[in-house]
Simulated scan of single mutants.
Amino acid sequence: MPEIEGGPADYFWPESISNGWVAGRAVDDRADASRYFTSLRYRIADGRYEELPRSVSPNLTAANGRTAGGPAERDRPPIITAGGEVVELPRYRTAKEYEISTFSADGRRLGGYTTDTDGEQVGTEPLLWTCR
C-alpha cells in the first residue's frame, strides 16, 4: 500500500493502466467514518508511487505516464497532468459536466462527451481535445 498522510493507505483503487503506469486513488478510512482520497500513479518497473496534484481524479493513463480525468471539483472541465503540471482543458460552450472515455498513448488527445442536462433532456455532445 502507498503511504499517505504519514501512514499506509487502506486501499488503492486502480482506474487505468498503460505501458507500466497505473493511475488510481489511495483511500484512508478515518475513525470518524469519513474517507480521504489521494490521487496517485504507480510505476510498475520500479514499484514507486507518485502523488498527483490534489485537483486530479485520474481516469485514464497514457503510455508516457500522463493522466487524464475529471477535476476534484464539479463544474470544471477535464484535466491532463504532465509531470507536475496540471492542464485544464477548454470548456465546450457552457457545458459543466464531462465524461472522459479515451486518451491517446502519446497523451496528446482526449475524447469524451458532455452530460449536461437542459430541463428534462440530457444532452450528450461528443468532444475531442488535441494538445499542442
Rank of each mutant, 00 (worst) to 15 (best):
L52I: 09
P71M: 14
R76C: 11
S55L: 07
P53G: 08
T67W: 02
V56K: 00
A68C: 15
R76K: 14
T61W: 00
N59A: 09
P53S: 12
R66C: 06
E50M: 08
P77V: 05
P77L: 07
T61P: 03
E50R: 04
R48S: 12
G69A: 09
T61F: 02
R76I: 10
V56P: 00
G69M: 09
E51F: 00
N59Y: 07
V56Y: 01
P77M: 07
P58A: 08
A72S: 14
S57H: 10
I79W: 01
I80G: 07
N59T: 09
S57Q: 12
P58G: 07
I80M: 08
R54A: 13
R74F: 14
Y49G: 01
L52H: 01
D75W: 11
P71L: 11
P71W: 03
L60S: 06
E51K: 07
Y49N: 01
S55Q: 12
Y49S: 01
G69F: 03
R48C: 06
S55G: 11
R76G: 04
E51C: 00
L52M: 11
P53N: 12
T67V: 15
P53T: 10
R74I: 15
A62V: 03
R66L: 09
P58R: 03
G65L: 10
L52S: 01
A68W: 03
R76P: 02
R48A: 10
P78M: 07
E73N: 13
A68S: 13
D75R: 13
L52R: 00
L60G: 02
A68Q: 05
R76E: 15
N59G: 10
R66S: 09
I79R: 05
T67H: 02
N59K: 08
R54C: 08
P71N: 13
A68E: 07
N59V: 09
V56D: 06
L52Q: 05
P77Y: 04
T61S: 13
S55N: 09
L52A: 05
P53R: 06
P78Y: 05
N59M: 06
D75G: 11
G69C: 05
G70S: 15
N59E: 12
P71R: 14
D75F: 13
T61C: 11
I80E: 02
S57E: 14
P58I: 03
D75T: 11
P53Q: 09
P78H: 04
V56A: 03
P71Y: 00
G65A: 11
